[in-house]
Design a protein around this nucleic acid. Structure first.
Lengths: 217, 217, 217, 217
DNA sequence: TATGAATGAGTTTTCATTCAT
DNA sequence: GATGAATGAAAACTCATTCAT
């Protein structure tokens, strides 16, 4: 799976150059989370074990680096969705596993730090379309199947699931690890069960709505 | 209400100095949201219409400014809780109004931008204890009353409500305004209804747990 | 005269700030000539005796500094033309003095170092229009009067004089000081005398043509 | 002629290496003129279509590249002088053709960009002696013959012609193409005619003086 | 008290140069 | 020989902070 992921990233680099590129992205991800997205790029280079010039050769500015990290994050999200779908016995449990797993990705921690304009620019970048579509497809499959199984309430669409996913993704770091989150997730899942509570306002959110709201990015 | 809020802030300034202070906080809040918490303080001063020297006289460093903005945010949160409690006919509807209202405060947008260490330091600052206690008290009251009314499931505590509140607070800006949020909130509220779904894992979260997780900060 | 020159430069600065600005321009002019237009701006600041930040506050980039130096150069050129016109007994001698004096300004040494695009941008800047017009006016007066006196050949216009001026301005530094230049200038002046040699090709160049060719810039 | 020129450059390279060397010099000449002599060598290599390593193999530093370009320039100058001398019917017309042709070489555009120290170093380099001597010889021949013919005033020497040549060479790019230059050249030629105007100050400049002043370099 | 000019440390960024492939 | 990846020194540039006016 990891291999498949990597194959979608820029290729055609000499083996050593490729390895350096990956080291840089890993270091950047770590430091962005630890110290904020304004860490000196010097420090990123140092942690990656390369010269600052090498970093700049691959990533002409901070934004390019953020984009690369975001792309990797999205790969993880797609992995999570596809694995859940594949490994769980039924669609409802796949949905549960997916939502619970989103928290651990800590994706929002990064997105939330971006200023709105940059955030928008990153989202608009076309590098992410394909991979984002994979997430969408998986969510769509799980939602429809769970409804056919009578496990998921009928008046929600895949877009609604994506919204809940986003909420999990953006959970602040200090809560993300704790046991309290598990309870909150269960409250949501209870609210999603078929035959529960009052009808929701408006229309079920479709995959297209979802496309507008999916996180990071 | 606004007046009451202001009285809790530093006082004893000459009227014009006081006005300058407020202009600065407002400008800072706007710019932190627009451009990130790293906006040049020069720019904050310019937007506030004061000299950079004046800004420094009131706020010895960026952290002091962040603290002031956070404090104001927390005042808004307390306002929201107390007003809901006072104006709604019953506790369940007060809870609903409170959760729905959290989104509009856009509080998390700022907190989420802080690096973990700074975030921790701000939370620990003692300026916020009193006002945070007000939020806690209101939540506690609403929760217990709603359970007594048989409207809220019995296995949740005020801490659980606070978690849901936090989720709403941290909702990313691009989603915060949309109609999709309303649906997500309703899903959660459905999950909170008495007699719904499966029991939650672990113990109901108390006000003390809540204290650890409340946002902004 | 120097005073008049200064009054045309940006004003409204505190006295000390104004003095610093001037020190920077002087230092820049010296170093651009000594070391090329790529001298580290650090060095300019050091020679001016100010911090690098001060330099950047007044001149947001190297181009702004070049523009300021160029403006000063042009002031010197106008001074030269006007002084010659005022102090010489007749227009022909004023022209001679003007042409001979151009060499000493060393103006071209700077312009010639600019890459074409930058050069064009500087020329286009509107800061220089007024002062350039002064040069044009003086040249026009001298030319017409010298022709009325029967000293200057009739088939040249002020634009032709400006061309010769430009040639002198762009004389390379290693020749500019030497005695050889004097001889070359005299050859030109001989060629300008009334009744000499063959007619020139094309039309006499007017002040408008001149406007297109005047140097530095 | 072009072939003869090339034969004087370093030889003994494999055919492909030789071709690469020439591509680099051509690219360098273009970019030096377009962007200034500080253009990144990376860019020179790219325009030449070779790797940066290849460039460095041939030219150990920027100065070597400048020297090569200058050398080529000087070859063109010698070509111009020798061709004029050979093809024109008499020495006066050869001189005229030579002076008029200098403008098109755009040689000064490069020299003028050098800082004084580098300029001096390049001039001093011994690579250029032989080729510069060719220019000198041609000028000397034309001057003496034109004076013998009674066409050129007697009180100028070949050094004076060289000075006028230099003036033409250093003409700024924005003027070099225009029709105005032709008029200026004619003014000079008129000033050079036998029997014209007043005597020149000082002594006629010899070939030795000329050696000191000839451009590029 | 308010102002904004000055400062320089800290970052970003570029590019000449080396060297493994 | 050719290539282009890596390097890091040097230059550009920003901005928090101080302090004279």
């Amino acid at each position: 799976m990891a291999k498949a992921t990597n194959q979608q990233e820029p290729t055609g680099l000499r083996a050593d150059a490729r390895r350096n590129r990956d080291l840089i992205v890993v270091a950047a991800r770590e430091l962005f989370l630890e110290q904020g997205i304004d860490v000196p790029l010097d420090e990123v280079a140092r942690r990656a074990g390369v010269g600052i010039g090498t970093l700049y050769r691959r990533f002409p500015d901070r934004e390019a680096l953020l984009r690369a990290v975001g792309e990797e994050n999205l790969h993880h999200l797609a992995d999570l969705a596809q694995t859940a779908q594949r490994e769980e016995p039924d669609a409802w449990h796949a949905l549960c596993r997916f939502l619970r797993g989103c928290v651990k990705l800590r994706m929002g921690e990064l997105s939330a730090k971006l200023d709105p304009h940059l955030h928008q620019r990153l989202r608009a970048g076309h590098d992410l379309h394909e991979i984002r579509q994979q997430v969408i497809d998986a969510l769509l499959g799980m939602t429809e199947q769970a409804q056919a199984d009578g496990a998921l309430r009928g008046d929600v669409g895949p877009g609604d699931i994506a919204m809940l996913m986003t909420l999990h993704i953006y959970l602040p770091a200090n809560m993300a690890g704790g046991p309290a989150v598990a309870r909150v997730t269960e409250i949501m899942l209870n609210g999603l069960r078929a035959g529960v509570g009052s009808p929701l306002p408006g229309e079920a959110l479709t995959g297209d709505d979802l496309r507008r709201y999916t996180a990071m990015e």
